[in-house]
Design a protein around this nucleic acid. Structure first.
Length: 475
RNA sequence: CGCGGGGUAGAGAAGCAGUAACUCGAGAGGCUCAUAACCUCUAGGCGCCGGUGCAAUUCCGGCCCCCGCAACCA
């Protein structure tokens, strides 16, 4: 990534369910950042896609009576639908089952192995005979499977490949200490420094093919497939041409990665160590956001509090959803979202705020015959403050600023009262309205990365001197 | 003493030593260009107990309560 180029990526969601609001938030944030940099004149490469290998998918496909490929095709499609639903401007949609990605993952493995960072060892796994499943420690309660507490957990040995994560501790810490803003926000950076400083354990990067065939084959070992994480993370480089198109790779790397807090380790430590092991530079930045809860609880089907982003889009419109996710979901902290909160923000800020402002101003503009000069319809720059917020990923603060301007404009109309003056001092009234329309143009321009369609509608109304349809009807 | 984050008006959310922003919601006025919209005013708050300071929401100590993580998972 050069000074003029900007490479941003979301994490690749695992395709074992339809897209949820959390991922929608992440990808909308990425889209806003991408659009904003384009406005500011940088070339942008915006990547997203789907993570499609692994045991969970394999099992669910089998349970659904589908081939894994058919199963992931179905979900990849459902994630692709987000593009139009949320008006996303990504440049690339990578699937980890894409041939080019599979080849890249294998090449990546070869390089890491050739550098001596992968080894094979026997690995004890905890197995619940009742479930017929391997269990992680966090799934066990008091050393027993919560579903089959009467049965002993069996320890079985399996031979897997391991990645020498532990040898990268010093390199990671050095990097962290020399890169002030590598992980954002700072609190998360502290967490990962702490984690790495406390010591790293090598992790398993393959699975027995006989147990789990749905993965990228390990080069030169027909018995094993890559563990899903190892292959999926490589997408960040395979998406920009590594290893076949190194010119393209050099143009865009390193990347700014967005991820949820559950992904901190994988993105900020494991993946960085993998890059180092392959002799590649670290990422530029890892931005960690929070989770979305609903009524104080994690969204889950059994609680019935799941909010489907596509339903919101259907009921309120694309820009309304983008608006809400960008301003009313905190960029870094967990946020509680309910349909009520959404509707409240919609009515207060979109219908009564922006939408109403456009109506009242356009009415006067047209009735009084006020036109915004063409040259005023060109210049736009984000204020320094707005730029700073965007660079810190605080998109909510930028919207706060923009909505403050909406409020000021409403106030301006109230104080100057052009609708009264038009009867006694029409010149004065028209001048005031002209100023207001100029400001409205600026507001619309600032809104472009956030609400692209709305921004265009407002600008179109101003330049064509025509009343737009109500932007956000009250609900 | 496993690690970490946090408790600011009904809700969300800034500030982090010197009259406690802002948004929504509530109450009372005003206006008429507008999507029963808009403007003004009002009520209401720093979890608890100590300490340091001229001054503490802000620093220090203790307590209480939430919430993550602890190697599957946005």
């Amino acid at each position: 990534m050069t000074d003029t180029n900007f490479y941003i990526t979301t994490t690749l969601p695992y395709v074992n369910a339809d897209p949820h609001l959390g991922f929608a938030t992440e990808i909308v944030l990425a889209d806003i950042l991408a659009r904003h940099w384009r406005v500011r004149g940088r070339a942008v490469f915006f990547n997203t896609g789907t993570d499609e290998h692994g045991l969970k998918i394999f099992r669910q496909a089998v349970a659904a009576g589908l081939s894994p490929q058919a199963y992931v095709n179905h979900y990849a499609e459902s994630f692709r639908r987000l593009r139009s639903a949320l008006n996303l401007s990504y440049d690339n949609f990578i699937r980890t089952t894409d041939e080019a990605h599979v080849v890249a993952a294998q090449e990546f493995w070869r390089r890491v192995a050739a550098a001596g960072h992968i080894y094979k060892k026997l690995y004890p796994i905890k197995y619940c005979v009742g479930c017929e499943l391997e269990k992680t420690d966090s799934e066990l309660e008091a050393g027993r499977c919560p579903l089959h507490p009467a049965q002993e957990i069996e320890v079985r040995e399996e031979e897997n490949y391991f990645f020498k994560f532990s040898s990268f501790q010093k390199q990671l810490l050095d990097w962290y200490n020399h890169t002030v803003d590598f992980v954002i926000p700072e609190r998360r950076f502290g967490e990962i420094k702490n984690f790495v400083a406390n010591g790293l354990q090598d992790f398993s990067v393959s699975r027995l093919r006989s147990k789990m065939p749905w993965g990228v084959p390990v080069p030169d070992d027909p018995e094993q497939v890559m563990y899903v994480w190892f292959d999926a993370l490589v997408n960040y480089i395979s998406a920009i041409g590594w290893p076949t198109d190194m010119a393209k790779f050099g143009e865009w790397w390193p990347v700014v990665q967005l991820a949820g807090k559950d992904n901190l380790r994988q993105q900020a430590a494991m993946w960085q160590a993998m890059l180092a092991a392959a002799g590649l530079p670290f990422s530029r930045q890892v931005v960690i956001h929070g989770f979305i809860t609903s009524s104080g609880q994690k969204m889950s089907k059994s609680l019935g509090n799941v909010i489907d982003p596509l339903v919101l889009v259907n009921d309120f419109g694309t820009d309304a959803v983008r608006y809400f996710l960008a301003r009313h979901v905190h960029p870094f902290e967990d946020s509680d979202v309910t349909r009520e909160k959404f509707a409240e923000a919609y009515n207060a800020n979109l219908a009564n705020g922006l939408g109403n402002l456009v109506s009242r101003l356009m009415r006067m503009t047209i009735d009084y015959g006020v036109r915004l000069p063409a040259e005023s319809q060109k210049q736009f720059v984000f204020s320094e403050e707005e730029q700073k917020f965007l660079e810190r990923y605080e998109v909510n603060r930028v919207l706060d600023k923009i909505w403050a301007r909406v409020g000021e404009l409403d106030l301006k109309i109230q104080t100057t009262q052009p609708f009264v003056l038009i009867k006694t001092d029409p010149e004065r009234a028209k001048k005031d309205v002209a100023w207001c329309v100029g400001e409205l143009w600026q507001i619309a321009s600032a809104l472009e990365p956030f609400l692209p369609a709305t921004a265009a509608t407002v600008q179109q109304a101003i330049s064509s001197h025509a009343m737009p349809p109500p932007l956000f009807p009250r609900k």
